[in-house]
Amino acid sequence: MHGPDVSWYLALSGLMFTIGAIGVLVRRSPLIILLSVEIMLNGANLALIAFARHFGHADGQVFAIAVMAVAASEVVVGLGLIVAMGRRNIELDVDKLRTLRG
């Protein structure tokens, strides 16, 4: 392969996953937590596609497209919840949602 080999892509994907995980753990706005989850999913997608190229099978790309569909579904449900919270004037702060004793 011309250019960087798969370990470079792996390092980048691990870094992206980590940045997303930090966002999920540290931020309290549910919107930004959703955006950080997207970064984590994209980091995993990058690893899938890098390995698909490395082994010469396109199955990893098929799986990445399935992950994209799951991410889209997750965004629909998550944004639906956030809009419902906004309509009922609940403060958008995940630390203040205590009904489930979280």
Partner: peptide, 23 residues
């Protein structure tokens, strides 16, 4: 799918909620 559809939905919801989204 991502850059088009999903992110437009995100921006739409953020614009809809307005000031409430400030942390």
């Amino acid at each position: 799918v991502y850059g088009g559809a999903v992110m437009v939905m995100f921006l739409f919801v953020i614009a809809y909620l307005g000031d409430k989204t400030d942390e």
